[in-house]
Simulated assay, not measured.
Amino acid sequence: MTSMTGGCLCGAKRFTAEVADDAKPYLCHCRMCQRASGNVSLAMLNVRQADVRWDGEPDWYRSSPIAERPFCATCGTTLGFRFLEGSEMMDLTVAAFDDPSGFRPFSHFGAESIHRAWLNTEGLPEQRTDTYKALQDRWDKAGAAPPKL
Rank of each mutant, 00 (worst) to 15 (best):
D91H: 07
D91M: 01
D91E: 10
D91I: 02
D91S: 10
D91G: 07
D91F: 02
L92S: 03
T93E: 04
T93F: 03
T93I: 01
T93D: 00
T93V: 09
T93W: 03
T93S: 01
T93C: 09
V94D: 15
V94K: 07
V94P: 11
V94T: 14
V94Y: 13
A95P: 00
A95W: 02
A95G: 08
A95V: 05
A96Q: 00
A96E: 00
F97H: 02
F97M: 03
F97Y: 00
F97W: 03
F97R: 01
D98M: 12
D98Y: 10
D98R: 03
D98G: 09
D98V: 05
D99H: 15
D99F: 11
D99R: 08
P100M: 04
P100K: 04
P100W: 00
S101N: 07
S101R: 08
S101F: 04
G102T: 00
G102M: 02
G102P: 07
G102V: 01
F103P: 06
F103R: 03
F103A: 05
F103T: 09
F103C: 04
R104S: 14
R104C: 14
R104Q: 14
P105W: 00
F106L: 07
F106R: 13
F106V: 07
F106G: 14
F106I: 01
S107T: 06
S107F: 01
S107C: 08
S107A: 13
S107G: 10
S107H: 09
H108R: 09
H108S: 14
H108T: 03
F109C: 15
F109T: 08
F109V: 12
G110K: 01
G110D: 03
G110V: 05
G110S: 05
A111T: 07
A111S: 13
A111H: 08
A111C: 13
A111M: 12
E112T: 09
E112A: 15
E112V: 12
S113F: 04
S113Q: 08
S113K: 06
S113I: 03
S113L: 03
I114E: 13
I114A: 07
I114T: 11
I114G: 11
I114Q: 13
H115M: 12
H115F: 10
R116H: 11
R116Y: 12
R116P: 04
R116M: 11
A117I: 06
W118C: 10
W118L: 14
W118A: 12
W118E: 08
W118Q: 05
W118P: 05
L119A: 10
L119R: 07
N120T: 11
N120S: 13
N120V: 11
T121E: 13
T121W: 02
T121S: 07
E122Q: 13
E122W: 06
E122A: 15
G123H: 04
G123E: 04
G123S: 10
G123D: 07
G123R: 05
L124V: 15
L124C: 09
L124Q: 15
L124G: 05
L124K: 14
P125N: 06
P125T: 00
P125E: 05
P125M: 07
P125Y: 08
E126C: 11
E126S: 09
E126A: 09
E126M: 06
E126D: 04
Q127S: 11
Q127F: 15
Q127R: 08
Q127Y: 13
Q127N: 08
R128W: 05
R128F: 06
T129N: 15
T129E: 14
T129D: 12
T129K: 12
T129H: 10
D130K: 14
D130L: 03
T131L: 00
T131V: 02
T131P: 01
T131W: 01
